[in-house]
Nucleic acid binder design. Sequence first.
DNA 1: TCGTTTATTGTCAATTATGACAATTTAAAT
DNA 2: ATTTAAATTGTCATAATTGACAATAAACGA
Lengths: 201, 201
Amino acid sequence: MGRPSKKEERTEEILNAFYRCVARYGLEGSTLEHIAEESGLKRSLVRHFVGNREELVQLLVDRVLQQSAAQWQAMISSLPAEQRPEALLDTLFCDQYSDAEYVLVIESLIFSAGRDPALQQRMQQWLQGFTDDIAAILQADYPAAETATLAAVAYGIVSIYFNLDSLAPLGMNAQYRQPARTAAGYLLERLQQSPATAETH
Amino acid sequence: MGRPSKKEERTEEILNAFYRCVARYGLEGSTLEHIAEESGLKRSLVRHFVGNREELVQLLVDRVLQQSAAQWQAMISSLPAEQRPEALLDTLFCDQYSDAEYVLVIESLIFSAGRDPALQQRMQQWLQGFTDDIAAILQADYPAAETATLAAVAYGIVSIYFNLDSLAPLGMNAQYRQPARTAAGYLLERLQQSPATAETH
DNA sequence: TCGTTTATTGTCAATTATGACAATTTAAAT
DNA sequence: ATTTAAATTGTCATAATTGACAATAAACGA
């Protein structure tokens, strides 16, 4: 009955094009014209398959956050049973675990979140997940550490990692990966001190 | 000779309006219409006094970076003679040293720098200045520390500080100021270890 | 072949942002 | 009062973006 629908495959192409456009032009700067050109489709077709701009953004955000969470969980799962905190840092700060396009897209989403309450809340939860997961990994290996200490170290690691990304627009990632890894390692060392030895600051 | 020029005063008003617009709409999103409305002037007047959009952006960036550097230098200078690293952290992570509007403007500039090579280079230098200054302050108090260690700690402190800002669009600054300060303190503690005691990682 | 469903193309109107410039008004000096 | 330089207002043309929809072409089943 009737011509077969290409909705799913076209939607896939459109979202992939949108993704690349966001990395290049930012979320706001990615016009339907850009997306159409990038996907090789007419603008009318983009509208036909995914609807208006709002729905398009919704779809992309869903996709990016879901894929990001999946990758993160996969990475967590692939960590060895021993020395998990160290392995985590090695993975986070290795060259391979860094996709320039992905970083730019995330940055665009965070930036736009400042003017979009709904997106803001989603990104908050997304980010909080990382901190929580890292804190959990730390606690497993350093059960004696105080909660505040664990939270601070986890936050510090996330900060150092995300800062490397958040400055991606400045193109300074590569040169700072090494000091970033070292600094994160220093935070980890702090957990090896017994709670009694905690600083008197 | 003719009517007295209001160029300086008007330019001031326009740049202040532009600044507020950037905090609210981002750099790209701040149209001449927005700026005109925010400043209470006609759009034609904005063009009349500061020229086209490109020149306007140029002026704003100059202004923001120059003011930022001046504030930073003033802060550095006001640090006590003793315990400068600790005093630095206390200042960086205290509530008062955080201007939401300023943070958003800087974020906008960094974001836009990804699509503007000239701006990118300026922001790179601007950022590098912070790391260098902090490293110098650390070295003065920890002359025995190795260069790589100093660089890593300085980078870590800058990361934690900037990350607090870079996530400003997510509105999570306040709740993370405390762990940020604690994590930065941990990095500082690392410098108190003698070079010989360095970790075996 | 015919009818149905969908893809695909094309076009029009409304909005917004920008650049350019003419026309007018205002405030000072002479 | 006249001249002069600048502010101020207003208008027009152009480009970009988007929404809406008509019209055509293609693929499938009966």
